[in-house]
């Protein structure tokens, strides 16, 4: 069931970008952002190739190289767990496993670099090599909101809240502050 509200005009976007450096990257980004399932369908990749007169194999090369290009339809909500060194030492693998089991991602391999989407396309779970917020490890992103110093308990609370509220955005769940600690500025910041 893929009800597209509007079909993105690949050719018009290509016309606008043609000749500019990184035209292909820009076009793929625009296509993905405009897609209701936030991914690059093969059909759209072919249209991009034709519109920019680039061989389809080269478009495939670019689309498979960059981790932020999705080649599968994405869940309505995306949980991204940082697997950088700092986050890892502070338990991000456990967070990833907890999130996967809580959201019903059966068959997901937490050691794989790939993304996993639940069968009902409600959630996509994925990892990132590093958010660059190592001082606030471990870091988890839910949709566009970044949660720092995540704990298993808080993750469960956030995700359960998100699940209950369905379409609504997860409410910010405050965490226990360390003594003398300033409120982190990243919390809830837009990506």
């Amino acid at each position: 069931m893929d009800s597209r509200a509007s079909v993105f005009d690949v050719e018009a976007a290509a016309e606008r970008l043609r000749g500019k450096p990184g035209a292909l990257l820009g076009l793929l980004e625009e296509i993905q952002d405009s897609d209701p399932a936030r991914y690059l369908s093969e059909e759209n990749l072919k249209r991009a190739a034709a519109a920019l007169a680039v061989p389809p194999s080269q478009v495939w090369s670019v689309a498979t190289f960059y981790g932020f290009f999705n080649l599968q339809p994405q869940g309505r909500r995306t949980i991204t767990v940082c697997r950088g060194t700092a986050c890892h030492t502070r338990g991000s693998l456990g967070l990833l496993k907890d999130a996967a089991s809580l959201l019903g991602c059966e068959g997901y391999d937490p050691n794989s670099e790939g993304a996993f989407t639940t069968a009902d396309r409600e959630y996509t779970i994925r990892t990132v090599a590093c958010f660059g917020q190592c001082a606030l490890a471990p870091v988890v992103m839910i949709d566009d909101e970044i949660y720092s110093r995540m704990t298993p308990g808080r993750l469960v609370a956030v995700l359960s809240g998100a699940k209950k509220r369905g379409a609504k955005k997860a409410a910010h769940v405050p965490r226990r502050r360390y003594e003398g600690e300033a409120a982190p500025s990243v919390e809830g910041a837009r990506r």
């Binding site: 061989p55 194999s57 080269q58 495939w60 090369s61 498979t64 190289f65």
Partner: peptide
Amino acid sequence: VSAIDYAGR
């Protein structure tokens, strides 16, 4: 022809 290219990383 460009049937093939590098893919992935």
